[in-house]
Amino acid sequence: MKRTPTAEEREREAKKLRLLEELEDTWLPYLTPKDDEFYQQALKRKARMIPSSKAEIPMCGMLALRSHGT
């Protein structure tokens, strides 16, 4: 038996459809780790994250170095 979608689910679906209509034939980049731009985008995303305390600044730096294998 199929259940009836809730008002929240219907609203979410309507938003998805509106977004798809707005985008129409616009090309959306899909990046994988094999793409050169993938890591650049990931670094930009990490750079936008602002540490909330001074103690997090060195920790974020160490994690960045560790993730790059240095």
Rank of each mutant, 00 (worst) to 15 (best):
R48Y: 06
T70H: 14
Y39G: 02
M49P: 05
L23W: 01
T70W: 15
K15E: 15
M62P: 05
R66L: 14
L23C: 03
D36N: 08
M49I: 14
L19S: 06
R48P: 06
W27M: 13
G61D: 05
L65N: 10
L19C: 06
L65M: 10
M59V: 12
T32L: 11
K44M: 11
P33T: 00
M59F: 11
E24F: 07
K2M: 13
P29K: 02
L28F: 01
F38W: 02
H68F: 13
K44W: 07
R12I: 07
K2H: 11
H68R: 13
C60K: 15
D35C: 02
P33Y: 00
W27I: 14
L65W: 05
C60T: 11
E24H: 12
D25Q: 09
R18T: 03
L17R: 15
L28D: 00
L20S: 06
E13D: 10
M49K: 14
A47G: 09
T70C: 15
P29C: 02
F38R: 00
M1P: 11
R12Q: 10
R3S: 15
A42Y: 04
E11R: 15
Y39M: 10
Y30H: 10
T4M: 14
E21T: 04
K44A: 13
A55W: 06
R66H: 12
D36T: 02
P33V: 00
T4Y: 11
E22P: 05
R45S: 14
H68L: 14
E11N: 12
I50Q: 13
M62G: 09
K34S: 02
A14I: 06
D36I: 03
H68C: 14
E21V: 03
E22F: 12
L28V: 06
A55I: 05
S53L: 02
L65E: 06
